[in-house]
Design a binder for these strands. Structure first.
Lengths: 346, 346
DNA sequence: ACCGCAGTTGGAAACGTTTACAGGTGTTGC
DNA sequence: GCAACACCTGTAAACGTTTCCAACTGCGGT
């Protein structure tokens, strides 16, 4: 911890000088390779006297790896990603990688830039959550300069690893549950249907309706944004249609819907049941706690990070284009299904 | 985008060969320094043919900066930090820095390790949110190998920049507000009082009580953890004391408390008012929306990042040990202050 | 006395950049 | 027609490591 004479940080050169050995010996000692007893002592003493810390940049340049991983996602500020970020960070940390976070703000060009920036060797690998997948994405992915794991669904044939949620099944789970608890007029508040999640959730909604013998009714479906305010507005519109349940494409929409219901004095779930998706921290926090579909954020984050790390540490070769799917899980809470009554009528 | 002959990534050497010029010329062209018309064209053509991306590691080694900043915080998964992370990320992104996120898990040794790791030159600067500040922290901070901004209060005299919240004043704001709306038995659910936030919030609570002419009553105060469950449990204990308001040291505690109240059929705020702190995304999401004290997370994140960037880009020299304080702001929502009754001032 | 060998060591090259410096060209002014 | 000069270019060093290779030491075996 003593101030360094030469001005800058101590390097192996300073140590070599102080210990009276060559830089090669310093490097060897510091890396635990063979050396004479005395050499080891001299070097270690010099290193600790000078407060030496190895320069990670130089090391990276030499051996071509930074031990950094990039996680690119649309918006760090969105609670829906919290669990995922935490899971990714947990894995990278224990695997000895640092985590670079990159907010793409859901801008396609920014996503592509991240993909290309793999070439600058700043990080050894990338996990990316594209909000939608264009042909440009596919191009950029296939010729990426390093390993990439995509969070989301890729057309088959693209030789890139991916981890996906099954939101079709997930949405269906929720709708079926609502039906099981007696709901028959199940409204649907969806996000933009030109996004992958939007499309899938709609598909699951339709499928479950059909399976339950309910008819799809345009008047009960609203497509809007993905935020709380959008949910509140949409619920307001829908209430004229007298739904007995509102299924929302994510928790934020569901919270907005719940607020609109509260504001009109409707009870949840007695008057209108509410269910969301993502099972974010929000679902557990509110009153009544929100029934939601856990799309496996934590598991997907973990799997994606593990996949990347395995590929990098490359012990067992993984086939390019490995895909993992996290099964959805319905988490029933008080916003649906009053435990006693269960055949309701409108 | 063509495959590279030599196997690896293209470098300025590949370009130089392909363009028939020296690597110096390549470097100059790529950095926009002077060169003959034809040279520029040849180099640029070669670069784009080969799909050249400059190696950031090599560049960092050369000029001693990585254009990376580290943000170390106790827990990425905590919604209270969301706004801050977003703000930091926003600033770093526009300033052209990448953001390294490091979760310390509130472990002191981990925090110290981060501080020391500044010496490895992995990032140019550090923003750190220590959960508490030990003498070891002070030592590590004063001899840190690069610029650091601390989120939180530092003993004066430590020559390190910091950005602090004024949670003493913030807590007082909330308590005074509760008093203004007619509450007289104001309970307090606090986090661990051996943390800086815990201590400060207690101080603010006491000060405001005194100012309002209320006496501090041990029986109305619970010290517990910082999570939702802790809040619910604490509120359960407190209800026997018949408070007419519960002031919580953060939003999570407040949500827990609100849940406990709901579960016992008590109305918010008619029977018991509830207020929290942090004004996290949670406060806006729940029903009833939660009165909370915005401690300026966004502003602190922004200020901290700006401070760091300014120091690094070093145009205007900033005195070491600069301190910024973000003023707290009371955000009144429906969980307090039934709109009819009032003698309010805030 | 010599060879081979294991154990250590130092010199030097390499990773991919940037940049100081010197050398080369062509142009201008006399 | 020649000096001075601007301009452009290439060589080489540097950043801080790791690692290949050759050299040196001391040793035991022949």
């Amino acid at each position: 911890m003593s101030p360094v004479p030469g001005g800058g940080q101590p390097t192996i050169v300073s140590i070599a000088r102080q210990a009276g050995v060559s830089i090669a010996s310093v490097s060897r000692v510091l890396n635990g390779l063979g050396a004479r007893r005395e050499t080891v002592e001299r070097v270690e003493r010099a290193a600790s006297e000078l407060g030496y810390v190895p320069n990670a940049v130089a090391r990276s340049l030499k051996d071509g790896r930074t031990r950094q991983l990039t996680f690119a996602l649309p918006d760090i500020g969105n609670p829906a990603y919290l669990a995922m970020v935490r899971a990714v960070q947990g894995v990278t940390k224990t695997a000895g990688y640092r985590l670079l976070l990159h907010s793409t703000d859901a801008v396609v060009d920014d996503e592509l830039a991240v993909l290309r920036s793999l070439g600058d060797r700043t990080s050894d690998g990338l996990i990316i959550c594209p909000i939608r997948i264009t042909d440009d994405h596919i191009d950029a992915l296939t010729c990426a300069a390093g390993p990439v794991v995509v969070m989301g669904s890729l057309p088959s044939g693209v030789p890139v690893d991916s981890v996906r949620a099954d939101s079709v099944t997930g949405a269906a789970l929720a709708v079926r549950h609502l039906h099981d608890t007696g709901c028959r007029r199940i409204a649907f508040i969806n996000g933009p249907s030109d996004t992958v999640p939007g499309r899938n959730r709609e598909e699951g909604y339709r499928a479950a309706l059909a399976e339950c013998g309910l008819v799809y009714d345009d008047a009960l479906v609203v497509e809007t944004g993905f935020g709380i305010e959008a949910g509140a507005r949409a619920a307001g519109e829908l209430l004229g249609r007298r739904p007995d349940a509102v299924f929302c494409a994510n928790d934020q929409l569901a919270l907005g819907a719940a607020r609109a219901l509260h504001a009109r004095g409707l009870r949840i779930p007695q008057d209108v049941a509410v269910a969301g998706m993502d099972d974010s921290v929000l679902a557990r926090s509110v009153w009544p706690p929100l029934t939601s579909v856990d799309l496996g954020s934590t598991e997907r984050g973990r799997r994606a990070a593990e996949l990347l790390v395995e590929r990098l540490d490359g012990t067992a070769p993984i086939p390019r284009g490995t895909t993992a799917t996290a099964p959805p899980r319905l988490v029933v809470r008080a916003s649906t299904a009053p435990p006693t009554e269960n055949t309701r009528s409108t």
